[in-house]
Design a protein around this nucleic acid. Sequence first.
DNA 1: TTGTAGGCGTTATCAG
DNA 2: CTGATAACGCCTACAA
Lengths: 352, 352
Amino acid sequence: MARRGGASRVTIRDVARVAGVGVATVSRVLNGDPAVAAATRERIYAVMAQLGYQPLRTARALSRRRTDAVLVVLPLLTRFFYVEILRGIEEALLETNIAFLLRSLERPADGSQAIASVRRDLVDGVLLISLAVTPAWLARLERERLPAAVADADQDVPLPRIVVDHAAGARLAVRHLAQLGHRRIALIDRPDDPFAEKRISRRLLGYRQALQELGLELRTEYEHVTPFSVEGGTMGLYSLMQLPVPPTAVFVGSDTQAWGVLRAARQLGLEVPRDLAVVGYHDIEIAELLGLTTVRVPMRVIGRRAAQLLLECLSGRLARGEEVVEWVTPELIIRYSCGARRREPGTGGVGE
Amino acid sequence: MARRGGASRVTIRDVARVAGVGVATVSRVLNGDPAVAAATRERIYAVMAQLGYQPLRTARALSRRRTDAVLVVLPLLTRFFYVEILRGIEEALLETNIAFLLRSLERPADGSQAIASVRRDLVDGVLLISLAVTPAWLARLERERLPAAVADADQDVPLPRIVVDHAAGARLAVRHLAQLGHRRIALIDRPDDPFAEKRISRRLLGYRQALQELGLELRTEYEHVTPFSVEGGTMGLYSLMQLPVPPTAVFVGSDTQAWGVLRAARQLGLEVPRDLAVVGYHDIEIAELLGLTTVRVPMRVIGRRAAQLLLECLSGRLARGEEVVEWVTPELIIRYSCGARRREPGTGGVGE
DNA sequence: TTGTAGGCGTTATCAG
DNA sequence: CTGATAACGCCTACAA
């Protein structure tokens, strides 16, 4: 009693029948079970090819209780930084037959809503990008027995994670500026988590640490946290330049804000790098166009390795609850805004 | 003979038993079958809530032969334009319970590889963004009996599609420049498809049309197609300015290239808009920062409507093979680079 | 309006 | 090393 119309597809039973074996054997071949005679295996392969057989994903999913898909959650899809991490993830996943679903969070409130979509029957694992992993997340992951990994994680998240050594990145920037002769180096930072404006970042720690090591004075009025936007950077520089003793150099916690700093400098009649040296962070695509010296965070690598971490969880090579932290170290990219090299054409924009 | 360990989950059978009905009735309720007595329905809802029952997606998928997921294919994930369309799609899909898989194409060659991942047992439909839909795509979609829709499609793609009226957009820009007194208006365009450098765009048609309507001279040496990048724009302007009779205004087929035009103008000692008026295209995020007058393409709307189109295919409201084209018209956003408004602070970048 | 039972295609157990 | 067969959880034709 055929239940539906439609051209019936080639099933494992067809393969078994034509190959003269049982379905179990075909299934074994499909799953790479070594306990199949080589001759049998070859014959089955041949039949599969001949019949154009392809196992039905949904049927496998039901039977194996896994979907061969993972969920990627990330904030603000339009930001180059996150998207590059995503591409790293995609690269790694393309080498497997695991697909990925996407969920982007536009506002902080979207997070709790997104948590509900984390389901065992939807995906086999979860990849979190640059997100504050709340107890709610952890609880949900635990409840659904879903492995997870975090790309660009906070240091103390209790999940397998790739963490960027932002402190080291900051030290790189500050040391470089000091080397160029600067003594009054300010910091305009972004919040670590795009949705948590107030958190103190590792960059701040690295910044302070570097100043101390260099024997430079720490001035709290030089430390600013402003929104993660071009305007945020502009605001930051305006504040700094109103100080009685303004800095001669600024390390900015994101290239996006650094762009704002460059604009503000121009508006204030400051010539970069002569009157003000600027170092950014991330090395997103605009950095090169702006001639911005910056600290490069290897975004693709982060994504790729986070994905690999998750794959190891899925394959069982990594035990559940096992503590794994992989550190990634940024690298200094010297361009023109710091003054170490000379002359770079302006970048346009209208007016003076 | 229980096959596996694991805490057994709440199944439809549990619900049926507790509610004192058959599984079929529960299933009917689940699928909104109206032929269920209201009282029965209520009772079943109550039991489902009480037991915390959730139908297993994979089981449904196998039985219903649909996955409740769609595949989104787009070029170059890092481009704001495509990502914004993607967000429109996500918005629309979030209102349903349909998930989406992502496949981004970095190089043209990735296309053919991606086609292989289009499978009926993976997704229920496909959403193509800004891609040239080749015969290979169409064949694959047909073979897999997969409905598809295209966002930002070429006019003559034989699939349900959202088409941007680029010709109208170009006319908007050219007319605006003419109104400001310009007679020598050049075009620096991008290729329509990111992977097909040579194709002639609708923008070119609109550009020519507008000039004709305005009684302005058409000069083929004013028509340039350069790569879809900042450098592409720079190159374009350099070529134009070497002409014996250079233009006084340029309409640029993408904001990305327009940025390059602004940079090149500065390098050439031209002041925008005094010496050269510039109008861009798309209205991506940097346009505002650059003070760039541009033609806004409503990216989110495009994504959202393309998704809705696909949803209509899935629900059967839209018949297979039915011809559907929805037009979207761009809008002129006047800022400073065209000269219609005055004064805008520069945008930074290092050096003069 | 509701229940029974067979089927969706695959995996995995267990006996041979 | 291989085969028969019972799950996996849900949907639906058919009977009641």
